[in-house]
């Protein structure tokens, strides 16, 4: 019994370790002090500051645009890659698709920076999108592949057997059954893109900011509880997003896990 209690205590500590820092961030977003690290009474001041911070709002807008474009493209590429790998038992493609996951972010960041500079591509939204697509494909491919692996291969054969052409078999059977996986993969790609800092840092150039880049600058240069406020809002919106997905399309979340 004592051992069991110790196990639960250790688990509780781990949960605390995961949550306490975030609770502190949220708490200090309501702190009247100018320093992000000291409590000095309740205020909503920092949320007002945030609402009028045009640079921050613009950065957030950029982040959403990039994440939408990147996750959309990565969903298409990743799904194609998963389908091709399964159907043709390819060897090289899955290696190439998964390789970005086991190479350090920083290498991807600097190598894309060098690549764009050598090609005279102006760094900006487009270069960030391309960079994000390249690391998001892997996430979609993994989720869709696992969904494919769980699919009974005789389903498509049954469709063919009962008179469906290869195309019809794909549209009527494979795609609908894969849809939760594709959606989950796309969502995962979206969150990975909107969250990315390192690769964006190297490929955004001087003129373009995304939300993580803006937060980084604030942390490095002049930290105020506005960072806490934007963090809190970000967390709240992610939570709302995920909860609404779990209500609307619970299968999509299952595919993600």
């Amino acid at each position: 019994m004592a051992r069991r209690a110790a196990l639960y205590a250790a688990a509780l500590v781990a949960y605390a370790f995961l949550y306490v820092p975030l609770v502190i961030v949220v708490l200090f977003s309501f702190s009247a002090s100018h320093l992000g690290t000291r409590w000095a009474g309740f205020t909503l001041h920092w949320y007002r500051v945030l609402l009028h911070d045009a640079a921050m709002l613009h950065a957030a807008w950029n982040s959403v645009i990039i994440a939408l474009a990147a996750s959309l493209a990565a969903t298409v590429f990743g799904t194609l890659a998963a389908l091709a790998t399964r159907k043709y038992r390819l060897r090289f493609l899955p290696v190439l698709v998964l390789a970005p996951l086991s190479t350090p972010d920083i290498l991807q960041g600097v190598s894309l920076l060098v690549f764009f500079v050598l090609l005279n591509v102006t760094l900006g939204l487009k270069s960030v999108m391309l960079a994000h697509i390249s690391f998001c494909i892997a996430y979609v491919a993994i989720v869709v592949s696992s969904r494919l692996a769980g699919m009974d291969p005789s389903l498509v054969e049954a469709a063919r057997d009962l008179g469906a052409s290869p195309w019809k078999g794909f549209w009527l059977i494979t795609l609908p059954l894969l849809a939760p996986g594709i959606m989950a993969g796309g969502l995962l790609a979206f969150t990975m893109s909107i969250d990315d800092f390192v690769i964006t840092f190297f490929t955004a150039g001087a003129g373009t900011t995304t939300l993580p880049l803006r937060i980084y600058t604030m942390i490095k240069v002049a930290v105020t509880p506005e960072v806490n406020a934007v963090s809190t809002l970000l967390m709240a919106s992610t939570l709302v997003l995920v909860l609404s997905i779990s209500k609307l399309a619970p299968q999509a979340l299952k595919g993600m896990g």
Binding site: E157, A158, S165
Partner: peptide
């Protein structure tokens, strides 16, 4: 190809389409 043979199969796993109702499954051919 299988779709042009007047031959149908009962699979070991039955291979019923899980996203279609029973009626839609039966109506498929």
């Amino acid at each position: 190809p299988p779709e042009r043979r007047p031959v149908h199969t009962i699979f070991q796993s039955y291979a019923l389409f899980p996203h279609m109702t029973v009626a839609d499954n039966v109506a498929f051919p």
